[in-house]
Amino acid sequence: MNDHATTGNGSAPQPVEDRSNPYSGRRDMPADFSVSIGEKGGTDRQLLRPPTARTMSMRGFDDHYVDIVDYIVRITHRIWEEKQIGYIYDTYRHNSRVTDDYGLQYGRDKIVADTVHTINAFPDVRLYADEVVWAGDDVSGFHTSHRTVIVGTNTGYSKYGPPTGRRVVVWAIANCVALENEIFEEHVIYNNSSLIQQLGYDLRTKAREFGNQAADLNGLLDRRFGEAERVLGQGKPAHLPALPDDRFDVEAFIRRAYHYIWNWRNIGSVDQAYAAGLRYHGPTGREYYGRGEYKSFVLSLIAMFPDLALTVDDVYHMGNEADGFVTSVRWSAVGTHRGFGVYGRPTGRRVYLWGITQHRIRDGRIQEEWMQFNEFEVLQQIHRDDPFETA
């Protein structure tokens, strides 16, 4: 197939943008909040009085969904709260890839099994949608970042143990890619460390238990690892291009802020990227107010992992300069546990972190941040028994 087009004046052929590839990164970003949970007045209107008039093109999606936010909210409600678990067969592709704290879950049947397990453990579970950040369309695929608060009572067996009877409030962020009524890629991160504490378990004991179980399944354990490539040899981190003067480029702003704060260790750059009255919501019950507390949090992680190298894997957003923006950022990092901190004495172990962060940006500064990362998995990597040590 010819992938170039020739201009009418006979000039050199120009590449034709392929918008049918959901992995190309080329996505339309909504320029306002007309399709959002806030504009809908909350999810109860969608669930009790579902809208009927479509507000965007939804090629291949079931007729009763009017837009992508409506789709995400209502399929979540139907599967989890109405317990129509089999609806997963209609809304997830057979070879769906779901990445969570425990790694890659491949295939639709595994999603069904995991959903049954969780609802069995928390039969009265409720999922409250706080935000759905979205981008894309029904050609390249819809990308959604669904932040939700999960409430339920542990009256059934879970992977963590027998029923405790405790009521938990846990939040999560699920980033999905959907096309023609099916989700085929998902990155979901739960506040599992907070969940385990609310269930009454000792977090480090559970981390060691689960870490040892994971180690037992891996027959190729190897203590060797290379350097975290934040810098190359005796070099220094790369510089990024300056931000444009004529407009606010959300993606460039985010990538630059993350790079200079985390990889350059320029903690003072927080002052340029974040508002003085910042509100921060993080894993394991972290709630911070203001830039000073946020700087201390950044320092605490870098102190524990002195070679920490962070990469922004995906960014999309909605909004405009007048009304502000909301963003979804998926990121990953590697580092070696060589410093003291809340994770205990240094172990020298290489640790992999990944997370999803949503921001609310106004007047060129981040006003509020919701960060979720795989903290319980990090604790497993640190606190598991070392299979190479002998008694």
Rank of each mutant, 00 (worst) to 15 (best):
G219I: 11
I111N: 01
V149H: 10
F142R: 00
R230H: 11
R230T: 15
R166T: 11
H187T: 07
Y106W: 14
T99G: 07
T115A: 02
S193L: 04
D130A: 07
S145T: 00
Y201A: 13
A214P: 06
L203E: 12
L232F: 14
E229D: 10
K206W: 03
K206L: 13
T155D: 02
D202S: 15
A178P: 01
H143G: 01
N175I: 00
N218G: 02
I183K: 04
S158Y: 05
N218S: 11
E209A: 06
I119R: 09
G141P: 04
G107L: 04
V149Y: 06
F122H: 01
R208M: 10
D138L: 04
S158H: 06
Y106N: 10
D114H: 11
Q105R: 06
D216F: 14
G136D: 05
L179A: 09
G161N: 05
V112Q: 10
D100Y: 03
E185S: 14
S145A: 11
G141A: 06
N181Q: 11
D109L: 12
D222M: 13
V170T: 04
L195R: 08
Y128K: 15
R166S: 11
N218D: 15
A129G: 13
N120M: 13
T115D: 02
G161E: 05
I196T: 09
Y128V: 15
F210Q: 05
T164A: 08
Q213T: 08
I189Q: 01
Y106A: 13
G141N: 05
I119Y: 04
E209C: 00
V177Q: 04
F210S: 03
D202Y: 12
L179C: 09
A174C: 12
I119S: 08
